[in-house]
């Protein structure tokens, strides 16, 4: 599913936090947005998901302009995974109940089978199904959050820093899972992160946001080779290389 964002502007009260961002994503591709905290990258993602209904510009999925208020059918095609797995699962509901909400809303058939299938897709044991979120580890919770998005059988997955709340060993597991799922299900990813190596691991295209503007777009390959043009991108790359390979 191709995605086009054209001159997207979002303001919170007087302050404009996204100042005319444009980018295109080919179907099946994965696009990473990097930037510092407060650069507006998550805000772009939430507007794409339909959580923020107050924006200007154009957001279109496979050539179709998305309205400000999305119809329920939209959420079968586009789903989102949140940053914090401790805050994104209802604390008083079992995993089963969390996963069955979307199929119930959309009156899908074979809900039991779908839940069992999606749990095995994200490599969660079937006996996790009737547990509560507080009985699971952070990595398992994030798998539940991914399963909740996958049960809609979406074409686009919006990822809002899906690994930043997890510890390093679990981060790699989740990233590999996401990479595998993309191939299996031919998903289109849009991922937001402040971590360049995470983006480089999963995305082929990278957009760099500074202060509400997308200052540079380049391929992950160019980024790796140090072909960035904008000084901010170079700075980000330098920082991430230095962090990985301390002198």
């Amino acid at each position: 599913m191709t995605i086009e964002i054209d001159n997207l502007r979002i303001r919170f009260g007087e302050r404009e936090v996204v100042k005319g961002v444009s980018f295109d994503i080919e179907g099946g591709d994965s696009f990473g947005i990097v930037g510092e905290s407060g650069s507006g990258k998550s805000t772009v993602l939430r507007a794409m998901a339909g959580l923020n209904e107050d924006w200007q510009g154009r957001i279109s999925f496979s050539g179709e302009d998305a309205p400000q208020k999305r119809p329920p059918s939209f959420f079968r095609k586009v789903q989102m995974v949140f940053q914090d797995p401790y805050g994104s699962l209802h604390p008083r509901q079992t995993i089963d109940r969390i996963l069955s909400e979307l199929p119930l809303v959309h009156k899908m058939d074979r809900i039991d089978d779908r839940i069992a299938k999606v749990l095995s897709d994200v490599a969660l044991p079937q006996n996790a199904r009737f547990r509560y979120p507080h009985q699971l580890s952070g990595g398992q919770r994030q798998r539940v959050a991914i399963a909740r998005a996958l049960i809609a059988e979406p074409e686009v997955l919006l990822l809002d820093e899906p690994t930043s709340a997890l510890d390093v060993s679990v981060q790699a597991e989740i990233l590999n899972l996401l990479a595998d799922l993309r191939v299996e299900r031919k998903l289109t990813y849009v991922m937001v992160s402040h971590n360049l190596s995470v983006i480089a691991h999963l995305c082929s295209q990278v957009g760099v946001m500074v202060d509400g503007q997308m200052v540079e777009q380049l391929t992950a390959e160019d980024l790796r080779l140090g072909k960035a043009v904008h000084p901010h991108t170079q700075e980000l790359r330098r920082l991430s290389v230095e962090l990985e390979e301390p002198v």
Binding site: P72, G87, R92, E101, L102, V105, A145
Partner: peptide, 26 residues
């Protein structure tokens, strides 16, 4: 404004469903 309520909004559920099934029990 928590993420888990946002996630339920992303299921396409109506506001009433979210209020009475997910918020009221809390």
């Amino acid at each position: 404004n928590s993420d888990f309520i946002a996630a339920y909004r992303l299921t396409g559920a109506s506001s009433w469903r979210i209020i009475f099934r997910h918020i009221a029990p809390l």
